[in-house]
Design a binder for these strands. Structure first.
Lengths: 199, 199
DNA sequence: CCCTGCTTCCTAGGACTCCTAGCAATATAC
DNA sequence: GTATATTGCTAGGAGTCCTAGGAAGCAGGG
């Protein structure tokens, strides 16, 4: 009988596929074994436990997403870069909901270090070069971008915007406009936050 | 033998408690039965399935959170209200991580209608009265607030800000400043987004 | 007081998932 | 072609979800 030829890479890829189909929480060792035509016990030669499966999806997704963002960012700057960056995230989440969810699983320090997580924050910082923010404002801005984009995508995915006539796309582009303005009018201190306000 | 006295209310409360302790995904019918000193099969007289358990936690959390937000908002306006609103969310998420997670589970239309979801969007809109935004800008702004606050809280909860010297609290208050400025400089159209920009 | 009926809780058991232990088969390296 | 490491197997235990059907506690009216 020929072997199924299971490897961690093929396993992670299949798990990612499955996550997109049925959601990350329904990625199961048994189902994966079924898809490879193998008994579930056999998979434990390749992975330690079910959790590792999800971690591997996370690492894979983080890398894929970083590649996409990098491609989207190439040759762009300023608001153009901001929009491309944001759309890369949102489009990826739409195409690969399970993988995107995996993006949020907590990784232990070593795994995180070996992952594309650093590339993500580096690229976010690269965008902010167009807005000339010094530390620690830059870090705060990185967090603002991450929060806003992730929050929007996450709420949209959870169906939060479905029961209202206003389309999510319109809101999205308006949010991007607003973030762009906010980054340019970055408040120096809380007390003079309205310094740049129009009369 | 005396009865355990299980009711859906006590069940939902216990499930919420458990969710805060071990995470929503680990809220299990068996564990709950164990805590009530009852066989797991007995709980199915009160709930239909495990999913309903999570839905009930969601509804409970939504209501609790709405109460808190309402209390925080009382007597405040403008940026004051914005900050109180945002802190109510973040504090609740810190105190009740499992319940907060439940807040994001998708509810079927009837359940959603009967839940406090409407109160949430109403209160968000109430805050925006301080910034005089007409529709559809108001809806977009509601979504911006929801996205930014939920995104921040969600990333913070997932440990995204832990591996960096800059404290999450500082970034949070800076994010609030920025959102306040953004709401006041709301871009009329994408093309003249920088109308209110300082020289 | 006891009977009737409703609710709560039980036992029994099936299906599925996760995971371990130990063994067999197969590919690879020499 | 044989040795070795890898890959997959059977067997089985523990935990969870859920159904079916029956018993025990609790209410009300006679």
């Amino acid at each position: 009988m020929a072997r199924a030829g299971v490897t961690v890479e093929r396993l992670a890829e299949a798990a990612a596929e499955l996550a997109d189909e049925v959601g990350l929480e329904n990625v199961t060792v048994s189902e994966l074994a079924r898809r490879f035509g193998v008994r579930d016990a056999s998979l434990y030669s390749h992975i330690r436990n079910a959790h590792e499966l999800r971690v591997r999806v996370a690492v894979l997704a983080l890398a894929e997403l970083a590649d996409r963002v990098a491609a989207a960012l190439a040759g762009r700057a300023g608001k153009d870069a901001l929009v491309a960056f944001a759309n890369a995230y949102r489009d990826y989440a739409k195409e690969h909901p399970g993988r995107y969810t995996a993006t949020q699983v907590e990784l232990d320090p070593e795994t995180a270090e070996a992952s594309a997580a650093r590339r993500h924050s580096d690229m976010t910082r690269a965008i902010l070069r167009g807005y000339s923010l010094a530390e620690p404002d830059q870090t705060d801005a990185v967090r603002l971008l991450g929060s806003t984009f992730h929050g929007f995508v996450s709420l949209e995915q959870a169906g939060g915007f479905r029961h209202h006539p206003r389309g999510a796309d319109e809101s999205w582009s308006r949010v991007l406009d607003t973030v762009d303005v906010a980054l340019r009018n970055w408040p120096a201190h809380a007390s003079d936050a309205d310094a740049g306000r129009a009369p």
